[in-house]
Design a protein around this nucleic acid. Structure first.
Length: 569
RNA sequence: CGGGCUGUGGCGCAGUUUGGUUAGCGCACUGGUCUGGGGGACCAGGGGUCGGAGGUUCAAAUCCUCUCAGCCCGACCA
């Protein structure tokens, strides 16, 4: 490709509203353009990277026996009603109607459609099956952000496994686990598998593949010592022991005028340190007011609450709802003597005595509260969010919280969808069996952004060879120089013949412009042909990553570069 | 959904407080001259009606009302 004829609209300035490095650089480098919030056009350069990422993913899923499909992006509502997700998905699903008034949806995932196809499986002999596609998903994200990192329309590799038994599902899950490790490694991403919440997908196990990046949106607990890795939506920690010896104390009201926060209650006369307080949070779970109790110094994690409560829709109660339920305002709430409300209590409070909590009367608190005796707890659950510095649940070392991009997610779904969709095969005994499913996703565009986040410097992008839009950039400095033109031509032909993607910068621009653009778009290797070196019979070879230039002999440069590139592929 | 911010040529911005000539600057773009190894200089150009609608006024980018869009934080989110 000759740059002079290519559409590579580089910009000197990033759009003012771009924050993330990948967003800025992908726009500046002429890879993407925003159409509107959450919808991006891939320009030729961006598409090249996108396709290369997709190809790596395709090869590795093929390698574990995946069969590629391409399913419709638009689905009939009936399909989604069959699994109940027409209602469950809520506002996140794009919905529309055809001319006849029939309800349709734009697919946000494809369990339903693949399951629909899987109803034509009839025998255990046809299992296992591993099906996948690379296709557009549509999700009406409340807040698209950071360029390609969070969008409303994106290509996803989604695969689905169908097995007769749990052992089969385990094998499919492990196969994906291994494939994902290879994929992210080939993409130049350091991805760590972490224990994750299955969220609305349900199912028995789920592992996320996380790439550390400040541009990410997930927090992961990382133990540097034993390798424990878990999303904060799932992970836990080992707490320092606290005194919880049985106590004869009975709850006693005491005045706390003006006290509304944990910190204020620590300071007031007769109060208690946060560890000895009960934090009472009023939440609305699927329309029903419930109490979530935590130790005073702990934070609630909503995803954990959702997972342990089974509720689909969760929100904090309004202060009106709170007052109507408990008769007091936030800051004076407690669960002592409360009946008729579901009370969920964090495990960290189990067996605690001598606690301080709100009295459900503004400006009054209770002390001497014993958990089991004074509070009617419906369920003991893990719903606190682990903070950085807490002790690893497995080995006791210090946990670190690392900000990450979720690059992949694999789920064991079990039989929920297969059952709902009516998939059934006969086993060896002639008995009908419902297959068990797994589902496995990688967002292609998000992977592109994650790579950009992790492979760039001040001058621009720095693509790993495997996903670079072009492998080599031949920069001609003096367009009038016949010898330079001839050499560039010769090199382009030789590189292309060797299977490399070559971009030749033959623009009538000054060297500074060409160098700056070269670094911005991040082609891994640059061959610079300029009069100054050429007069000495030399050319320059510069890997983008190091930026250090090596002088090569004009006569042998093509060979040397080919050796270098083919060796590093 | 709550909070904050922003909409002026392709990109980045000034002008809005205090309404008043043909709406300005940098980059990019076109033609030219010089230059020629890190976004060069000069000359000459083209392109916007100021997110949209309504209103106030002799006069609106500027004031008022409504509305749309985008970004950030939070909530939410397979």
């Amino acid at each position: 490709m000759r740059w002079s004829a290519a559409f590579i609209p580089t910009l000197r300035d990033a759009p003012a509203d771009a924050e993330a490095a990948s967003h800025k650089l992908l726009v500046r480098g002429g890879f993407i353009r925003q159409l509107h919030a959450g919808h991006y056009s891939l320009l030729p350069l961006g598409l090249r990277v996108h396709e290369k990422v997709a190809q790596v993913v395709r090869e590795e899923i093929d390698a574990i026996g995946g069969q590629e499909f391409l399913l419709p992006a638009m689905h009939p509502a009936s399909l989604w009603k069959q699994t109940g997700r027409w209602d469950v998905m809520g506002d996140e699903m794009f919905r529309l109607q055809d001319r006849g008034g029939a309800d349709l949806a734009l697919g946000m995932t494809h369990e339903e459609v693949f399951s629909h196809i899987a109803t034509s499986l009839h025998s255990y002999k046809e299992l296992p099956q591993l099906w996948y596609q690379i296709q557009m998903k549509f999700r009406d994200e409340p807040r698209p952000k950071s360029g390609l990192l969070r969008v409303r329309e994106f290509a996803m590799k989604d695969s689905y496994s169908f097995d007769i038994d749990d052992e089969g599902l385990d094998r499919a899950f492990e196969a994906h686990h291994g494939a994902y490790i290879k994929i992210f490694d080939r993409l130049g991403l350091t991805a760590m598998p972490v224990q994750a919440s299955s969220g609305a997908m349900g199912g028995s196990a789920s592992v996320e593949f996380m790439v550390a990046s400040p541009a990410g949106e997930d927090d992961v607990l990382v133990c540097g010592s034993c390798g424990y890795r878990a999303n904060v939506e799932r992970g836990t920690s080992r707490l320092d022991p606290v005194d919880s010896s049985p106590s004869d104390e009975v709850p006693e009201r005491f005045a706390t005028p003006g006290v509304r926060t944990i910190a204020e209650l620590e300071d007031i006369d007769g109060g208690a340190v946060a560890v000895n307080q009960i934090k009472t949070m009023v939440m609305v779970l699927d329309g029903e007011v419930a109490l979530a109790l935590l130790r005073g110094d702990h934070q609630l994690n909503l995803q954990k609450l959702q997972d342990c409560s089974g509720a689909v829709e969760i929100r904090p109660a309004t202060s009106e709802e709170t007052f109507a339920s408990l008769g007091a305002h936030p800051g004076s709430l407690g669960a002592v003597g409360v009946t008729g409300l579901r009370v969920l209590c964090d495990l960290a409070l189990e067996g605690r005595t001598g606690m301080v909590t709100g009295a459900n009367e503004d400006d009054w608190h209770l002390r001497g509260v014993s958990m089991g005796r004074d509070i009617a707890v419906d369920a003991w659950v893990d719903m606190r969010e682990v903070q950085s510095g807490e002790a690893c649940v497995d080995c006791g070392s210090v946990l670190e919280v690392v900000r990450c991009i979720e690059a992949g997610h694999i789920f064991k779904l079990g039989r929920k969808y297969a059952d709902a969709m009516g998939i059934s095969v006969l086993d060896a005994d002639g008995k009908a069996q419902i297959p068990t499913m797994g589902s496995y996703g990688i967002g292609i565009g998000r992977a592109v952004a994650a790579i950009a986040e992790n492979h760039h410097d001040d001058a621009g992008l720095c693509w790993p060879l495997a996903v670079a839009p072009y492998h080599v950039l031949i920069t001609i400095l003096d367009l009038d120089d016949q010898e330079a033109a001839a050499l560039a031509n010769e090199a382009e032909i030789a590189f292309t013949r060797a299977g490399l993607d070559v971009l030749v910068d033959d623009r009538a621009a000054r060297p500074g412009v060409k160098f700056a653009d070269a670094e911005l778009i991040g082609v891994p290797y640059r061959l610079t042909i300029g009069g100054r070196s050429l007069s000495k019979g030399q050319v320059e070879f510069t890997p983008r990553e190091t930026g250090t230039t090596e002088m090569l002999e004009r006569t042998s440069c093509i060979e040397v570069i080919l050796d270098t590139l083919l060796a590093s592929q």
